[in-house]
């Protein structure tokens, strides 16, 4: 499968996430769109890892070139899991204080 197709798919998913962050006001939906962007990046990393592996495999059949891309995806997932736990705790605390998850209520620092 040409690498361009994977690039276009990942870019489309990333842009949908960006549009979601820009257009929605619910803090949870914005957080989910950030997860969507992280997953688009993960898909692109795996596709590039297999692309480099395909190039290296032509000369050496026992090569492990490209395995770092998949390890980076693993670490991105680890960091995303930690981020989600803290972020959801912050959203719950914000809901307790303002009884809403609307991000437009979070402008108190402005005054």
């Amino acid at each position: 499968m040409p690498i361009q197709y994977y690039i276009y798919l990942a870019l489309s998913l990333f842009s949908i996430g960006v549009v979601g962050v820009l257009t929605r006001r619910n803090a949870i939906i914005i957080f989910m769109c950030i997860e969507l962007m992280l997953n688009a990046t993960n898909l692109l990393l795996v596709a590039f890892s297999k692309m480099h592996h395909a190039v290296a495999l032509a000369s050496n059949t026992a090569t492990q070139v490209g395995i770092e891309g998949q390890l980076f995806v693993f670490f991105i997932m680890v960091v995303a899991a930690a981020e989600v736990s803290v972020g959801l705790a912050i959203i719950v605390m914000m809901y307790r204080n303002t009884h809403s998850v609307d991000i437009n209520f979070l402008n108190r620092l402005k005054n």
Binding site: K50, A54, I67
Partner: peptide
């Protein structure tokens, strides 16, 4: 990225054994 392809269905770098050894 001209004329590059992502390898489908083959390649052993995604298996748990190889990833675990490197990890």
């Amino acid at each position: 990225m001209v004329n590059k392809t992502a390898l489908l269905k083959t390649g052993s770098i995604g298996l748990i054994e190889n990833l675990g050894k490197v990890l």
